[in-house]
Design a protein around this nucleic acid. Structure first.
Length: 422
RNA sequence: GGAGAGAUGGCAGAGUGGUCGAAUGCGGUGGUCUUGAAAACCAUUGUACAGCAAUGUACCGGGGGUUCGAAUCCCUCUCUCUCCGCCA
């Protein structure tokens, strides 16, 4: 959510920049500002009235003290009247505040000026392509067939106990999954990230803090109870919300967490979701940074670099994309996607998304720091996957298949305890 | 599941109807002293909104109520703790 004073100060600029996201926000921006004008005016009336009431109450108190309570009755009446009037104005104020909030949550984050214009993922810009696309032998297979042949993943079993999109990993398949998680976490810890193992369920306030709620409720699994809870769609939600309502005094804050992620993914069917390509539950290791606004883009670069190193080590061919305005998420100002080439399907699969949210989440979270003048300012938040498991897993199976079996990259071998799956 | 206690500033902890945005201690910041540091001493130190400012207003877990006036009284919700039961 954007801050209203920020919108006031950058009105034209914001409207222009939002066009990069293919959004015409002029009406929203204008109505937010005019509602806020009204809010300010009304606030002033309320404050004046309350000040008057406070003065009266003080006077009455003094009269009582000096034993002239009889003189207080007209003042009391006056005070009652003021109270009635202020109550009405306060109700109006509450409504205005709510209306402004409702407008603000509809305005997406402002894209960074460098974000390329574009309609869809077809317009994303390839920044870099690394590694050689492997040429496979005749009879090479996609990962869902490999997973079945080598008894690594049982999709049917998951289907039976839960439903489509909830695979069961078995034997070396489970071990490989666990190895990847441990390897990713170790890499992140080595890079200075503190490991957390958060709850996999969050409350509504957390969902709001990172921007999933209220707009994207249909993407989440909800657990109805007296206080509604939500299964996390990413570790970003619990981890970033650690810092809700906090004034931090040291930068950067770097966190990493492994969690399963739960997503409804309503409306995606067919080839796109085959095998591990798109799941309702998947494992992911996330990195999160809380940064000083002046350092956040530097941090974004370092996160991109960090993810690249991991993919280098895994010996997977990958490319880095800068998302165009049309593909950029609601809350992001700038996002780089990582895609690995999965040779069995001959397609690129997104395995990481690294974003700077600037102060968009921080404003919702009330996550602030003290600047050199002691004034509270909003922090910047960033996060990225390092990495999402299933598609890395798919690419490893597909790219490393040989007629002898599936070879495990060297860096993973200490974690798996085997170097080939036969 | 049963019974009880509680929620106050960064932390600890006072405050039961008016002078309380809130004592005190710790911590933080600035200063004095010191070659430097520590100690000691002095000062300062919550958040948000409105305002150029002076200042005003709101906030003592959330919401509502009583009252001229609420951190303080009442209702309600949430959460935490203790004891008993159950249990990984």
């Amino acid at each position: 959510m954007l801050h209203i004073t920020n919108i006031r100060e950058n009105k034209e600029n914001f409207i222009t920049l939002l066009k990069i996201k293919n959004i015409d926000a002029a009406d929203l921006v204008i109505s937010a500002i005019s509602k806020d004008d009204e809010r300010k005016k009304n606030q002033k009336s309320v404050d004046d009235l309350l000040a008057q009431g406070n003065k009266l109450a003080k006077k009455i108190g003094e009269l009582y003290k000096i034993g002239q309570a009889d003189k207080a009755s007209t003042l009391k009446e006056e005070s009652s009247l003021i109270k009635e009037r202020s109550k009405k104005l306060q109700e109006k104020q509450t409504i205005l505040e709510k209306e402004i909030q409702e407008i603000l949550v509809q305005i997406p984050n402002i894209p960074h000026p460098s974000v390329p214009v574009g309609k869809s993922d077809a317009d994303n810009i390839t920044i870099k392509e690394v590694g050689k696309i492997p040429t496979l032998f005749d009879g090479a297979k996609p990962h869902w067939e490999l997973a079945n042949d080598y008894k690594l993943i049982d999709f049917d079993l998951g289907n039976k106990i839960t439903g489509a999109g909830f695979p069961v990993y078995t034997n070396k398949g489970a071990r490989l999954q666990r190895a990847l998680i441990a390897y990713f976490l170790d890499k992140n810890i080595d890079a200075g990230y503190i490991e957390y193992l958060p709850p996999h369920v969050v409350n509504e306030a957390s969902g709001f803090g990172t921007g999933q709620l209220p707009k994207f409720e249909e993407d989440l699994y909800k657990i109805p109870s007296e206080t509604d809870l939500y299964l996390i769609p990413t570790a970003e939600v619990p981890v970033t919300n650690f810092f809700r309502d906090i004034i931090v005094n040291e930068f950067p804050i770097k966190c990493t967490a492994y969690t399963p992620c739960f997503r409804r993914e309503a409306g995606s069917y067919g080839k796109e979701v085959r095998g591990l390509n798109r799941l309702h539950q998947f494992d992911k290791v996330e990195i999160v940074q809380i940064q000083h606004p002046e350092k956040s883009y530097e941090a974004l670069d370092s996160m991109v670099h960090h993810v690249a190193i991991i993919l280098d080590e895994l010996e997977l061919p990958y490319r880095i994309l800068q998302l165009c305005g049309g593909d950029l998420s609601f809350t992001s100002a700038l996002t780089y996607d990582f895609e690995v080439f999965s040779a069995g399907q001959e397609r690129w699969l997104e395995v990481s998304s690294v974003s700077n949210f600037e102060s968009y989440q921080a404003n919702r979270l009330k996550l602030r720091y003290k600047d050199e003048n002691g004034k509270n300012k909003l922090c910047h938040t960033l996060n990225g996957s390092a990495l999402a498991l299933p598609r890395v897993y798919a690419a490893l199976l597909e790219n490393n298949q040989t007629t002898e079996g599936i070879k495990i990259p060297q860096v993973l071998q200490p974690y798996t305890g085997f170097d080939i799956i036969k």
